[in-house]
Design a protein around this nucleic acid. Structure first.
Lengths: 356, 356
DNA sequence: ATGCAAATTTATAACGATACAACTATGGTC
DNA sequence: GACCATAGTTGTATCGTTATAAATTTGCAT
C-alpha cells in the first residue's frame, strides 16, 4: 500500500461548526479491550473473559492480561457493559427534596456511599417530588432499567412501592417496615422502643402530663411511635395527649405556634417526647417564651440523629438513631441481594438502639 | 415457511442455572426505535432523526413518530445513547461525606435536583473520601467520561481541580471562587460581606471585643471571611481576636471546649461572629456554662443556612445563606454550559445576600 | 419527456462490551 | 496412527442508538 495512504488516513477535520473548544490536547485514546488485545496478541473475547476471571482462560494468560490492563489504566466502559448486559451499576436512592428533616438525607447518603466504596456501583439520587405519587420514581426506574437496585425510606403499612418492586422481583431495600404479608428486606429503627423509653424517662423525672408529636399517620413508624408512647403512659397511668394538627414534618414555626397556644390553655403538658431535633427546638422555643425551663418546669427527651444536640443548652436528654449506619447497612444488604438472591430471612434488620 | 418454525422460533429456555426469580411475568418487551419503526413502516434511522427533531424529516412524519412514541411509552435507552454519543446524561456532584456541616449537602442536592427536573439528566453523588487527594474524583470522572458535567464545592485559591477541568475543557461549576488568572464559572456567597456586616452589628450592639471562627485556611472563603471581619473591626477600632486551633469544620465538642477555656482567661471576647449553626450552638453552650447570656453579657451573629435557627432561644441574630438557591443556580448554569459553550462572563455569579 | 436540485428517506457502520458456538491445540487411550 | 475428551482460544452476532453517506422521491424548469 502506498505511503500516501497512511498520511491521509485520518479523515479531514470538519470546518463548519466552528469547533467548540480547543482540540490542542491530542490525548491518548481511551484504552478499550481492543487496546489490550492488540498489545497482548490475544482476541478481544479472550481479554474480556480473562478480565472477568473465567476459569477456562489459562492462569498465565489471565495474569498477563491483568498486568497489561493495569499498566495502561484500562477501565471498562460502563455504557457498553450496560448496553450488553443490562446491568447499570447504579443504586438509586429515592429522596423527597421537600423533607426538612435535618441531615436525614446527608446521613443516609454518607452511609450508602460508604457501602458502595470500592465497588463499581454509583449512587444516583432520584428525587420524589411531592406533587407526584410516590410510586412514580420507582415505576420509572423499573420501566427503564435505570438502576440495579433501589433504596427508599419512610414506608407505609401497605406500601405500594414495596408491592410493585416485589411483583417485578426488583432488588430493593427500604428504611422502615410494612404490614404486608410477604416478608421483604428492610432496615428499621425501633421507634416503639424509642417512644416507650422516652416516655418512661419523662415519667421517672416526675412529669405529670406527657405529649408527643407524631410523624404523619401514613407512615408505619408513626404507629410504632404512638404504640410505644401509649404503652408507657398506660403502664404508668400518667396523663398524656397527642399533638393534633401538626406532625414531625410540620414547619418548625407551626410547631412552635401550636405549643405556644397549648401552653396558654389549661392543664398543659410538662413532658415532651420529641421525635427529632427540629421539633425539640421548636417546643423548647415555645416553652422558653412561656418562661418554662427544661429540667425545672418541663422535661424533654429528644431523638438525636446528628452531633448537634450535644451542645444544646439547657441540656436535653437524647436517644440516638444512627442514620449513617442505617444507610451503610442498606447499601451492603442491597449489594448482596443484587449479586445473588439471598434467603429473605437474612435481609430483615431492626437496628438495635444505642444506649442513652 | 412451515408453521412449525414459528412455534419453535424462541430459543429453548436454559435449564441449568436454576433460573433465579419467577419469569411468570411475560412482560411486553421494552419498546425501542425498532418498535416504532415497525409500527410506522419507517426505517430506524428515520425514527431516530424524527424524534431528534431534525428539520430534514417531514413535519408530518415527525408528528406521526412522536405520536406513536408517546402511545407506546417509548423512552430512549440511555446506555445505547451514551455508548454511541459519549454523552452520559449525568451530572456529578462531588461531596465529602465527612463534612458535618448541617444540611449543607442536602440543600445543595435539593437545589441541583430542582435544576435537573424535567431534563434527561441524572444526579450522581461522587464521594470524595478525605483520605485521598481531592483531585481524585475529578480526574477519575474526566478519565472515564463518567459525567457530562461536574459540580464541587469549597474551592481553594489555586484549586487544582479547577485547573485540571479547564485544561480538559470539561464542563464544571464550583461553589466558591479561586484566585486563578483565567476566569471560570462559579457560584459564591459573599462571605466578606457576611463577616463585615456581622462584625458591624456586634459593634453596634456595644460589644467591646469580637472574635470569629474561620474555615480551614486552605479554602478561599476563609480569606474572604477574615478580610470582611478585619475590615470591620479596623474601621471601628474595636478589640478583636481570631480563634486559633479550631475551624468551622472542627467537631462541635472541640469548639465548645476551646471557648470554655478561653472564657476563663483574661479579657475574653463578648461578640461572636459564627459562620454556621453548629459553631454558634457550640459557642452558645460554652457561654451558657459560664453564665453568659446572649443579648446581655455576650452577643452573636450567626450565618443561617436552614430554618433551624428561627427557633433558637435566646434568639440570635442571623444572616441567611441560601444553599438550595446556590445549588439550583449551579445546576442551571452547568446545563447551559453543557448544551453549548457560553461566554465565560455570563457564568460567574455572586449570590446577593438576603437581607437580615 | 428530460434533467437537475431540493426534499425526504434509508442502508451501513460504528460505539465497547459480552454470550454463544465454533475452532485449535494437547495429551491420553486403544 | 486414529480417535476422543479436554483445555484454551477465537469469530460472529448482538445490545439500542446515532453519524455518515447514499439512495430515493418530488417538484419544477427546460
Amino acid at each position: 500500500m502506498p505511503l500516501d495512504d497512511l498520511t491521509e488516513r485520518r479523515p479531514a477535520r470538519r470546518i463548519k461548526g466552528a469547533g467548540r473548544g480547543s482540540d490542542a490536547s491530542r490525548q491518548t485514546p481511551k484504552p478499550t479491550l481492543r487496546t489490550i488485545a492488540d498489545l497482548t496478541g490475544l482476541a478481544v473475547t479472550t481479554v474480556s473473559r480473562a478480565l472477568a476471571g473465567a476459569p477456562q482462560i489459562a492462569l498465565e494468560t489471565r495474569q498477563r492480561v491483568a498486568q497489561v490492563a493495569a499498566e495502561i489504566g484500562y477501565l471498562p466502559d460502563r455504557a457498553a457493559q450496560r448496553l450488553r448486559t443490562g446491568r447499570t451499576h447504579v443504586i438509586s436512592l429515592i429522596l423527597d427534596p421537600h423533607e426538612e428533616i435535618l441531615g436525614y438525607a446527608t446521613s443516609m447518603i454518607n452511609g450508602v456511599t460508604a457501602a458502595l466504596r470500592g465497588t463499581s456501583y454509583h449512587l444516583v439520587i432520584s428525587p420524589h417530588f411531592s406533587d407526584s405519587p410516590q410510586i412514580e420514581p420507582v415505576s420509572h426506574i423499573i420501566r427503564n432499567r435505570l438502576a440495579d437496585g433501589i433504596i427508599f425510606t419512610r414506608t407505609e403499612p401497605m406500601d405500594d412501592r414495596v408491592k410493585l418492586l416485589m411483583q417485578n422481583d426488583f432488588p430493593f431495600i427500604c428504611h422502615g417496615r410494612t404490614e404486608l404479608a410477604t416478608p421483604h428486606p428492610f432496615v428499621d429503627y425501633d421507634n416503639y422502643d424509642f417512644a416507650y423509653r422516652a416516655a418512661k424517662k419523662l415519667i421517672a423525672s416526675g412529669c405529670g402530663k406527657l405529649t408527643i408529636v407524631l410523624p404523619p399517620e401514613t407512615f408505619t413508624f408513626a404507629h410504632h411511635m404512638r404504640h410505644g408512647f401509649m404503652t408507657a403512659v398506660r403502664e404508668e397511668g400518667v396523663g398524656f395527649e397527642i399533638a393534633t394538627g401538626i406532625t414531625l414534618d410540620s414547619k418548625s414555626d407551626d410547631i412552635r405556634r401550636y405549643f405556644d397556644k397549648r401552653l396558654s390553655q389549661p392543664s398543659p403538658p410538662d413532658g415532651f417526647v420529641c421525635g427529632g431535633e427540629v421539633v425539640a427546638m421548636s417546643i423548647m422555643a415555645a416553652c422558653h417564651d412561656h418562661g418554662l425551663l427544661p429540667g425545672r418546669e418541663v422535661d424533654f427527651v429528644a431523638k438525636q440523629t446528628s452531633g448537634l444536640f450535644d451542645q444544646i443548652r439547657p441540656r436535653v436528654e437524647t436517644i440516638y438513631e444512627d442514620l449513617t449506619e442505617a444507610g451503610l447497612l442498606m447499601g451492603q444488604m442491597l449489594l448482596r441481594r443484587i449479586s445473588g438472591p439471598v434467603p429473605v430471612g437474612e435481609l430483615q434488620h431492626l437496628q438495635r438502639l444505642a444506649e442513652e
